[in-house]
Amino acid sequence: MTLTQNRITDLFATKSERLLNVYFTAGFPYLDDTMTVLRGLQAAGVDLVEIGMPYSDPVADGETIQHSNERALDNGMSLKTLFSQLADCRSATSGEPVTVPILLMGYINPVIQFGIENFCKKCQEVGVDGVILPDLPLDLFLDEYAPIFREYGILNVHLITPQTAESRIRLIDEESDGFIYMVSSASITGSVKGVSDSMRTYFERINAMNLRNPRLIGFGINNHETFDMASQYANGAIVGSAFIRHLAEKGTSAESIRAFVETIRA
């Protein structure tokens, strides 16, 4: 499928190197920080923003992101609240309009309770371009949800890992739009340090497949070196846990966020 108008596909049509996607948890460190961090990231010049929808049991995430999820839930964050925070972000009525492509990342159960169609509709209304739902399996998505996502113009970004079989990567490439999320190693978020030879072999193997979708590498990207390395093998990278740690330690000011992004991009 091809979507006619979407900020993510538009982005990749104009830029294909060293794209930086930064993840943060909605409602972290404080409930009203969502827009502050989003605007801070845009001002710092990141290419995409991934907003975490907090969940009580995030099995694909490590300690850092799980703690930020718990904190956000304690702050009272919910999908309903998140959509109301994002409601005017694309319009100029409340300050600088947000133009950076936005993805929502989270787990399927809160989305099911919100209602899949209602969720897609809200995403479209507030200007969310895509979602990442790690525990929504590909076949179920294709069987049950794909037509609804398409109707509202919402991309669903799929993950591949070093263990994903080539035939399955081909299938995911066929069924993806926007980009493919390459998990750097067999791991949860925030748990790897550095880049091993086996990772390079994996990255080269995927490169050689000539997939039709661009790729961003995530998991374990936490500084300039790892971002550089990922950008050699893919169209860019995703930073999550390192940014959450930065927010917790250095705060959510525009300067703090700019400083973080600069150390990654250097």
Partner: peptide, 8 residues
Amino acid sequence: FIPEMLYP
């Protein structure tokens, strides 16, 4: 309902 990391 599993993440791709568990799929294989």
